[in-house]
C-alpha cells in the first residue's frame, strides 16, 4: 500500500493539504484493516498530517521515506511506555522499603470483560513470578462464573508441580478461595491478610469478567479496588477486539476512578487502570492494531503480551515489532 499511496505525491515542493488528503485517507484505511479502531486511526493519521503538512520534500523516494517515517514515529510515540514496566523492580522496591517484620505483599488485580483471558494469563504471570524466585498467592475473586474457582485450582496445582520440578526446590504457590456467591472485595482483603501472615511476596487477584456498561458489576469491582488498593490494576484485553477496545478501556478506567472515589471506602479511592495485558496475540496474525488502540486510550503501558495457552506464552511488548506489523502490507 505504501508505494501505492505515496505515488500520488510527486515533485519537489511543500506538501499541501490537498495532496495529503488521499494519502491520509488510504493510511487510515490501512490502519483499520490492521484492526486499529476507527477513532484511533483518525487521530494517528491527523498527527501524521500535521507532521507532514508544509514539509519540503524532493522526489518520489523522499516523499515515501517522509510519510513512512512520520507514521512510524507517531505509532512508536503512542506505544512507548511513559512509566516503568519493570514489575519485578517495583515488587522488590516495595519489599525493601517496608520496615515491617512481615511486609504487606505486592498485589495485582486483573480486570476486563468476559472471556478475554484474565484467569489464564494471571496463571502465566504467576509462573513468571515463581521463576523469578517470588512466592505467590492466587486469590479466587471470581465468585460468579461456573468453574472459575476450579479453573484456578487446576492452574495452581500445575504450577506447584512445575515449581517442584525446578532446580532449587521451587517456590510456594497457593490458592486462596472461599467458593462461590460471596463478596469479591472481602475475599481479596482476606487473601491479602493471609498472604501477609504467611509471608507471600505477591497476591494475584482474579476477578469475574464483566461488561463495561454493567453498572452494578462495575461498582462491585470499584469496591474491590477501593477497599484493597492493589499495587497494580491490570486491564486484560484481547488482540481480537476491534473498535470496542476504545469503549472498554475508557469505561473501565472511568468507572473504576469514579465509583471507587464515590464509594467512600479504603485507600484505593480514585484508582484507575495502571497497565494492560493483551492476550490472544497468536490469533490475529499481523492485525495487531488493538494494541495501538488500547495504549492510545489509556496512555498506560502494555505490561505483558499473551501469545498462547501455556504458561510460557507470556512476553514483554516489543514496540518495534508492532510498528513493523502495522506498517507491513
Amino acid at each position: 500500500w505504501f508505494g501505492n499511496i505515496v505515488s500520488r505525491l510527486t515533485g519537489s515542493r511543500m506538501l499541501t493539504d490537498q495532496e495529503l488528503q488521499p494519502v491520509l485517507g488510504a493510511m487510515k484505511e490501512h490502519l483499520m484493516r490492521k484492526n486499529v479502531a476507527a477513532e484511533i486511526a483518525d487521530k494517528v493519521v491527523e498527527s501524521v498530517g500535521r507532521e507532514l503538512r508544509g514539509k519540503k520534500v524532493t522526489g518520489f523516494k523522499g516523499i515515501k521515506t517522509e510519510v513512512r517515517a512520520a507514521l512510524s514515529a507517531s505509532i512508536t510515540r503512542i506505544l512507548t511506555p511513559k512509566t516503568s514496566t519493570d514489575l519485578l523492580l517495583s515488587i522488590r522496591a516495595k519489599r525493601s522499603s517496608s520496615l515491617l517484620s512481615s511486609p504487606v505483599p505486592y498485589s495485582l488485580t486483573f480486570v476486563g470483560v468476559n472471556g478475554v483471558g484474565k484467569s489464564t494469563n494471571l496463571s502465566k504471570v504467576a509462573f513468571w513470578l515463581l521463576q523469578n524466585g517470588l512466592e505467590v498467592l492466587v486469590a479466587a475473586c471470581d465468585t460468579f462464573r461456573s468453574g472459575a474457582v476450579e479453573q484456578l485450582r487446576v492452574h495452581v496445582r500445575n504450577l506447584t508441580l512445575l515449581g517442584g520440578a525446578q532446580a532449587g526446590g521451587g517456590r510456594r504457590v497457593e490458592l486462596f478461595e472461599k467458593g462461590y456467591g460471596k463478596d469479591a472485595a472481602g475475599i481479596a482483603r482476606e487473601a491479602i491478610a493471609y498472604a501477609k501472615e504467611n509471608a507471600f511476596d505477591v497476591v494475584l487477584i482474579d476477578t469475574a469478567g464483566r461488561m463495561q456498561d454493567n453498572e452494578p458489576l462495575m461498582r462491585a469491582l470499584s469496591k474491590l479496588v477501593a477497599v484493597n488498593n492493589p499495587d497494580k490494576i491490570i486491564f486484560v484485553g484481547e488482540a481480537l477486539v476491534g473498535n470496542e477496545a476504545v469503549d472498554q478501556l475508557t469505561k473501565f478506567d472511568r468507572s473504576l476512578k469514579d465509583f471507587s472515589a464515590s464509594s467512600g471506602l479504603g485507600a484505593g479511592r480514585g484508582r484507575g487502570i495502571d497497565g494492560m495485558l493483551v492476550t490472544k496475540w497468536d490469533t490475529v496474525d499481523d492485525k495487531v492494531g488493538a494494541a495501538l488502540s488500547m495504549t492510545y486510550v489509556t496512555g498506560q503501558p502494555i505490561l505483558f503480551v499473551g501469545c498462547g495457552q501455556t504458561y510460557t506464552d507470556l512476553r514483554q511488548l516489543r514496540v518495534g515489532h508492532i510498528v513493523d506489523a502495522l506498517l507491513r502490507d
Binding site: T120, S146, G147, E150, Q151
Partner: peptide
C-alpha cells in the same frame, strides 16, 4: 479436555 476447570464449568452450569 484442555481448558483448566472445563468439566467443572459444564457440571456446575448444567446442574444449575
Amino acid at each position: 479436555t484442555f481448558r483448566a476447570g472445563a468439566f467443572d464449568q459444564t457440571r456446575q452450569s448444567a446442574t444449575k
